[in-house]
């Protein structure tokens, strides 16, 4: 029953993060609501073709503003529609010789695996080859220091005080093109902050590379089990900090679709992590921790 669960989680994701202009948004909400409430609609290809088309319309209407996970959501809905339309015959697929799952479950699992692996492969390509400011740590140095959304986290994990953060933001204020300061001030970067930059830069790249490899390479049943802990660990860590719960939910939803019927504990872990990401998005945990540490040290 993991595919219906994955589809319900997809519908829930659509309802929790309404998207698009008014011409598309009500229809997406309506379709997702019907899918969530009606078991028949949930397993009808038409529901997912419609959702894929509506999300594609949303992307076109708002282009280039939509985030990458909206594209992934559209591909995932299309994958669900194609899988549900593929029927229920039993046979082998995806290298699983004794896989007794219905055909549509195997098709959707393979699609989910390929989509996750491809998204991570491209993320790695950008970080390792196409970007000019990632590998030398500049991206995380600048982002940790200047992005308001990470202020609490960088104080908590980077050992920076609010005055240091304010000073660094002043230092990083952009100069007009061609301008030079006679005595440019330096950033205040404590050791803990530099460690945070190093760990986030290389940790992200290594974990994303491993996820891309384990989801895309034809690993045997023994090696393929490492996929799930990697994806779960990535979601537990990344979405505690990155404010894109929708991306986390989608990855975890596809992870649920990958579980075989007998993998109940794994499926439950995915669902628990899905709700953990929901909590991350609603509870300002880093700010609470700073307050708590400040209170306990004072």
């Amino acid at each position: 029953m993991h595919v219906p669960l994955a589809l319900r989680l997809t519908a829930l994701t659509l309802l929790l993060r309404p998207m698009g202009p008014w011409t598309v948004r009500p229809l997406i909400l309506l379709c997702a609501g019907v899918a969530l409430l009606s078991p028949r609609a949930l397993l009808r290809p038409l529901t997912w073709y419609t959702l894929a088309a509506l999300i594609a319309l949303r992307i076109a209407a708002d282009w280039p503003v939509p985030d990458n996970h909206i594209y992934l959501l559209a591909y995932w809905c299309l994958a669900a529609a194609l899988a549900l339309g593929a029927g229920n015959g039993v046979g082998s697929h995806d290298g699983e010789r004794h896989d007794s799952r219905p055909h549509y479950e195997r098709v959707i699992a393979t699609s989910g695996r390929l989509l996750i692996g491809s998204a991570f492969l491209l993320a790695v390509l950008w970080k390792a080859a196409l970007s000019t400011d990632y590998l030398d740590g500049r991206f995380f140095r600048v982002t940790w220091l200047t992005d308001d959304r990470f202020s609490d986290t960088v104080q908590l994990l980077g050992g920076l005080s609010q005055p240091q953060l304010d000073h660094n933001r002043d230092v990083l204020k952009a100069l007009p093109e061609g301008a030079e300061l006679l005595h440019p001030p330096a950033l205040e970067e404590p050791r803990a902050f530099l460690r945070l930059v190093l760990v986030s830069t290389w940790g992200m790249l290594v974990v994303e590379s491993l996820i891309a490899a384990t989801f895309l390479l034809p690993l045997g049943p023994r090696l393929s089990v490492v996929r799930h802990p990697l994806l779960l660990a990535f979601c537990v860590v990344t979405y505690a900090i990155a404010p894109v719960a929708g991306f986390g939910w989608l990855l975890l939803t596809m992870g649920v679709a990958l579980c075989r019927r007998e993998q109940r504990a794994l499926r439950a872990t995915y669902v628990a992590t899905w709700f953990l990401v929901l909590l991350y998005s609603e509870v300002p945990w880093a700010s609470l921790a700073i307050g708590w540490l400040g209170g306990s040290s004072g």
Partner: peptide, 30 residues
């Protein structure tokens, strides 16, 4: 996914599309 991503990479490299956008998964890379 790959067709969109290749277009995104071309636009980002040659037409100033932000790498964060366009479906090429360049977020948190630059």
């Amino acid at each position: 996914l790959f067709a969109v991503a290749v277009s995104q990479i071309v636009l980002a490299m040659f037409a100033n599309l932000s790498p964060w956008k366009g479906g090429g998964f360049g977020m948190f890379a630059t």
